[in-house]
Amino acid sequence: MKSVIMMSLLALIFADTAHAHSRLKASEMIKIRGNDPGIKIGPCGGLARVTPAVINPGSTITVYWEETIYHPGRFEFYFSEAGDQNFVLLKTIQNNSQGTPLPHQFNTTLTLPTKTCDNCTLQMIQVMTENPNNPTNYYSCADMQLKSATNNPDPTPTPTDPTTPTPADPDCH
């Protein structure tokens, strides 16, 4: 319980006050790349890497993000082990927040790969499906280093997850 409260406080302390259409929120586990809101160019808007969060491989972490303008669609979370390449889909969250007061606050848990990596990236893509035949994206990235360390913060359990997860990358062939 103490660690949950502590992590919530840390998330508030580190939270970026700037707003975007939607993007990851900074926390101890999520070192966001740049403050440019509404990045339209993938994978990370061409932004330089930042000092990464050091996390134990295989950890389950809580990711927070917000949406200040509602778009129907979903949020896709990807992980790259190096160089912002070969992203692997970790999770998809449908955006079920229509009609609720803005900004929309979200969180979910993600289980990171068990392999170590020095220049890994967590990427969130907001897929907007106003026109279902022509979806468009916003991108948001956070830098990570997956390595075993005794003084790494423990992964936080998520108290609530109001969103609906869907299976990762179904039938992509």
Partner: peptide
Amino acid sequence: VDIASTSSQCREKI
């Protein structure tokens, strides 16, 4: 494919 529900990565691959 169902464009609206296919992941952006999958669409890119296709």
